[in-house]
Design a protein around this nucleic acid. Structure first.
Length: 280
DNA sequence: AGCAGCCTGTCA
DNA sequence: TGACAGGCTGCT
């Protein structure tokens, strides 16, 4: 479900409620959630206060007052539920808290497919952040050009590589490539400086617009405050066979690197290769 | 690069 | 019944 705009939407909503709150109880109901933090001790969370809620790429960072940090990766179907009543069929973690005004509340992490992971990071210890490239919204045009120029991989595959640039997923990769008129299979290094700058501008614009819209809800995703609306502005994702909003050509959907890939065959022309008939 | 695997739910 | 899904890892 979540790419950078969805995780940022969740972060903003959680920050409002969690910052300064005291954890009074924690219960993990699915050990798979914490399988990447083998020493995870839920009992050590009670009594800790939450300092703030951050984000890097698709990772959600919850700082505790003892220097430790909870890091959530929502993967495909992870999400948060505040003050929900009754049982939730996919609750994997329940946190009981008391906010700064002394009012008790409950936060649940839910995840139907169970791909999501929770890490408990100690100061100086290993962290999933170690494997993350710079956040997509904190890369300037020059660094972006350098990034694209550093690889001969298909550009979409590079955009999805979280160790090179963090936060872009399948929806927004397709959307920014369309906005910039770049074919997803273009070898990254062959994108010239002007198109690289155009792709950078498209990235910033689309991610910012998606955050302002509360993210994209295609199937499962919802923040604690409900679904997003950016799907209404998708130009290619989920629009296979429909006319391109720029030129009217039918949007095509192919499989690239195991991911559904949507593009306009007219606006996003594949770069021609030398003498092999255009195969890549 | 490609594919199976991790899981569950939904839709054609 | 099979295909597919906002992610990622591990193997060939």
């Amino acid at each position: 479900m979540p790419e950078l705009p969805e995780v940022e939407t969740v972060r903003r909503q959680l920050a409002r409620r969690l910052t300064g709150a005291l954890i009074t109880g924690a219960a993990v109901s699915d050990r798979r959630l914490v399988s990447r933090s083998p020493g995870f001790d839920q009992g050590s969370l009670a009594g800790r206060r939450i300092g703030g809620v951050g984000r890097h790429g698709k990772l959600l960072l919850v700082d505790l007052d003892d220097g430790r940090r909870l890091i959530f990766h929502l993967k495909m179907t992870g999400g948060f539920n505040l003050d929900g009543a009754g049982e939730h069929p996919h609750a994997r973690l329940v946190l009981d808290l008391v906010d700064a005004a002394g009012i008790p509340f409950r936060l649940r992490f839910t995840d139907s497919r169970r791909f999501g992971r929770l890490y408990l990071v100690v100061p100086g210890g290993p962290s999933p952040l170690d494997a993350q490239g710079p956040d997509a919204l904190r890369i300037d045009t020059e660094a972006w050009r350098a990034l694209l120029g550093s690889s001969g991989r298909r550009v979409k595959s590079l955009l999805l590589d979280q160790s090179r640039v963090a936060g872009i997923g399948n929806i927004y990769a397709d959307e920014m490539l369309h906005r910039a008129g770049v074919h997803p299979a273009t070898p990254s290094r062959r994108i010239g400086p002007d198109r690289a700058a155009a792709l950078h501008a498209a990235m910033r614009d689309i991610l910012a617009g998606a955050i302002a819209a509360g993210g994209s809800t295609v199937r499962d995703y919802a923040s604690p405050c409900g679904p997003g609306s950016f799907q209404e502005r998708h130009a290619v994702y989920g629009r296979a066979g429909e006319p391109c909003l720029s030129c009217g050509t039918a949007i095509r959907k192919v499989n690239q690197g195991g991911r559904g890939t949507h593009f306009c065959p007219a606006c996003q022309r594949p770069s021609r290769r030398r003498a092999n008939g255009g195969r890549r």
